[in-house]
Design a protein around this nucleic acid. Structure first.
Lengths: 350, 350
DNA sequence: CGAAATCCCCAAAGCGCTTTGAACGCTGGG
DNA sequence: CCCAGCGTTCAAAGCGCTTTGGGGATTTCG
C-alpha cells in the first residue's frame, strides 16, 4: 500500500496524509488521528527510496571498514559497531558498511560523500595528517570523528583520555618501583598512539626519571607482533620489569612471551594493558587477571553515532568535543618491581 | 550533474544516454562511446536513490546482526563481514547492517523484506526451527543462508562440513587412545551444533565405543563459559583426557582451566578446537599451538555474498547447496592419552 | 457587516532515474 | 515506387514521496 492509495482510502489528499504522518502542524488533530489509525490498520510504510529521492536525505549513516586481510582490530570493531547500531537503530537510521582497503579508502569516502547514499559518515582512528578529514572538509560533507583529530577545530569528535590513561598507568608502575618499562604502542601515525606516548613520557618526566628508561615500540597491535616484541625485549640486556600494552590482545602476546621464558607475572614482570572492553576477551578472564586502563568502546560507538545524527539534524560541526576519562583498574598482573639482582649496570652482563 | 544535464550537453535524450550507460543493445556503438566518454569527463554518477525508486531494486544486501550486549561471536562476525564485503564491493552492492536483539530479530527481518531497502538478505546461524526462514519464505523475499538449514529444500545455502570435521577430530582422539572426551559445543538449537554432535557421536560408534564416554555440553561459545565447564569436568571423577572445542575461544577457556589445575597440555590433556580463522587469534599462536579443524569463515562470507547477488540476478532459490570440507590440522595440543593410572573404574575413586 | 486573519486542506510540480510506445530515417524486396 | 523491416532515437509516463503555492471555510476584528 502506498501513499496514494492510503489517501484515496481516506478521501484525503496525499499532501494531507503525508503531513499528518510526518507531524506537520498544518493538519488538524482530528484528521491526524484518523490518518495515523488508518496507516496503522493498513500497515502502511512509506517507501524509503521515494522519500530519499524527494528529500535528498538518505536516513543512513556511513561507516567504512577495513576489509584488508589483516583486519587487526577485529574484536574491537564489532563492539564499536554494536554501539553505533544501538543508537542509530533507535532513530531509525540505517547503517551502511563500506568495505575498503587502506589504499582506496579515500576513494570510498569520496564516493560516499557524493553518492548521497548516506547523510553523514563516521571516521575512526584519525591520523596525524588525515586525508579523509581533509577530503570531507573540502566537500563540505557532514562527518564526525571517533578519536581526536590532530587539528580539532571545527570538528565534532569524541575520544577517550589516552594521554591521561597512560600517564596514570605509567605513574602507577613507577610507584611500584619499576624503572625499565616497555610500551607496546599502536602505529605511530595514529593520534591515539601519540597521545599514549606523551602520557607515558610525561609520567617519567614527572618522576624525574630519564626518558630512555621508557622503551617504546610502535606497531599494529596484534598478539603476534606483541609476542615478538616482548620476546626481544625480555631477552635483551636491558630487560624491562614492566610492560604497557595498547590493548588486551597485545597483553596476550606479552603473556605468551613471558610464559615461554619462564617468567612469572606479576612476580617477575608487571603488565598493564588498555582495555576497550571486548566481551570476547574480558580482561578479568586472563590469567592472571589484567590490570587495565578501561574504557568502553561500545559506549563510544553509541555516542559518536549520536553525534553523527545530531550533525544530520543540523548541529554545527565542532559543537561536540568530548574526552572521556579512563579509569585505572588494578588487578593481578601488576606487583612491586622485583629486586634488582643484576645491579644497575646491565650493560656489563653480556 | 544529473542525467538530464548530461543529455542536454550531448544533445541526446535522457533515454538514449541512460541506455548507453546501462549497456542496452538498442543504442549504436558510436553514440555509446561518446556518452561514456562524456560521463567520464563530467564525472557523472547516477543517483542511487532515483535509480532505486525507478527500478525497485536497492542494489544493497542486508545483514542483521545481534547487537545485544553479549555479542558472543564478535571476532568471527567481523571476519565474516569482511568476506561479505569483499564480494559485494566488487559488484557495487551496498551492505546494510541492521542491528537487532534476538527478541525482535524477526521484526527486523520483516521490515527489511517489506521496506525494499535491500534486495536480499543473508541469514546466518540457522536454527533447528528457524522462524526467519519461515517468514522470508512466506513473504517470498530472496535470501540465502550461511549454515545448513534443517530443511534445505528450495533454499540456497553454504555450510562447512561440521559433521565430518567433528567426526574426524573425534576419531583422531580415539586413535590416540582417548576414551573420555568432553565436547564443548555451541547452543543446542543451532544446526551446526547438532551436526557437530552427530559427527562426534558417529566416531564413537564407529570405534565401537559406548556413547556415554562422550560428555557433551551445549552453551554459548565464550571463553568464560568454556572455562567453567572445563573446570567442572576436570575436577569430576570421570575426568576427560581430551576436549573437543567449538571454537578457538572455547579452547582458550579450557586452556585456562587446565593451567589452573596444573595440567599440562598435551601431556595430561589433549585439545582439538574448530578454527574459523580469526586473524586476531591465530590457532598457531596459542601456547601450545592448537590442533584444529580449520575452515575460513571469511571465504564462506565471500561465497555466501556471491550467492546472494546471484539470487538477486535471478538465480532460483535452492540452486546452490555447498558443503565445504574441513581439514584437520594436527599441532601441539594433542598427544597420546596418558596412562590410565586410576584404572577404568573411576566411579570407585570418590 | 465586510475585510482580514486563521485553519485546513488540496492540486500539482518536482526529485533523477528507467522504460514504454512511437517515430524517425534508411535499406531492400516486391 | 511503395511499403515492410530494421536500427536508432525520442517524448513522456511513471516510481512514491515531499513541498510549494494557492484557495475554500471559518473565525476574528474594526
Amino acid at each position: 500500500m502506498n501513499l496514494k492509495e492510503l489517501a484515496a482510502e481516506l478521501h484525503l489528499s496525499q499532501t494531507t496524509v503525508s503531513r499528518a504522518l510526518n507531524g506537520y502542524p498544518e493538519v488538524s488533530e482530528k484528521t491526524r488521528e484518523i490518518v495515523l489509525a488508518a496507516a496503522q490498520r493498513f500497515g502502511y510504510r512509506p517507501s524509503p527510496a521515494a522519500r530519499r529521492l524527494a528529500t535528498g536525505r538518505a536516513h543512513a549513516l556511513g561507516v567504512v571498514f577495513n576489509a584488508e586481510r589483516n583486519a587487526l582490530m577485529d574484536p574491537l570493531f564489532v563492539e564499536y559497531l554494536a554501539g553505533v547500531a544501538e543508537t542509530s537503530a533507535k532513530q531509525g537510521f540505517d547503517i551502511l558498511i563500506s568495505p575498503s582497503t587502506p589504499r582506496d579508502e579515500i576513494v570510498t569516502f569520496g564516493r560516499l560523500a557524493r553518492d548521497g547514499t548516506v547523510d553523514v559518515v563516521i571516521i575512526s582512528g584519525p591520523k596525524l595528517t588525515d586525508e579523509r578529514i581533509a577530503l570531507l572538509n573540502e566537500l563540505e560533507f557532514p562527518f564526525v570523528v571517533h578519536g581526536r583529530p590532530s587539528d580539532p577545530t571545527g570538528i565534532s569528535y569524541i575520544d577517550i583520555d589516552n594521554f591521561g590513561a597512560f600517564q596514570q598507568a605509567t605513574s602507577f608502575l613507577i610507584q611500584l618501583g619499576h624503572r625499565r618499562v616497555t610500551l607496546i604502542n599502536g602505529e605511530e601515525h595514529f593520534t591515539f598512539a601519540q597521545d599514549r606516548s606523551r602520557g607515558a613520557a610525561n609520567a617519567f618526566a614527572a618522576a624525574g626519571l630519564p626518558n630512555d628508561m621508557l622503551d617504546e615500540h610502535f606497531m599494529p597491535m596484534t598478539a603476534e607482533n606483541a609476542y615478538h616484541c616482548a620476546r626481544q625485549a625480555l631477552e635483551s640486556d636491558a630487560r624491562p620489569t614492566a610492560f604497557l600494552c595498547g590493548s588486551a590482545l597485545v597483553a596476550l602476546g606479552v603473556l605468551r612471551a613471558a610464559a615461554e621464558l619462564g617468567l612469572d607475572v606479576p612476580r617477575d614482570l608487571s603488565i598493564v594493558a588498555h582495555d576497550d572492553e571486548m566481551p570476547a576477551f574480558p580482561a578479568d578472564q586472563f590469567h592472571p587477571q589484567l590490570t587495565t586502563t578501561r574504557s568502553s568502546i561500545r559506549a563510544a560507538g553509541a555516542r559518536v553515532a549520536e553525534m553523527a545524527l545530531a550533525r544530520v539534524a543540523g548541529q554545527k560541526p565542532g559543537a561536540v568535543a568530548e574526552v572521556w576519562p579512563v579509569q585505572l583498574i588494578v588487578r593481578g598482573s601488576t606487583a612491586a618491581a622485583p629486586e634488582r639482582t643484576g645491579g644497575k649496570s646491565d650493560g656489563n652482563r653480556s
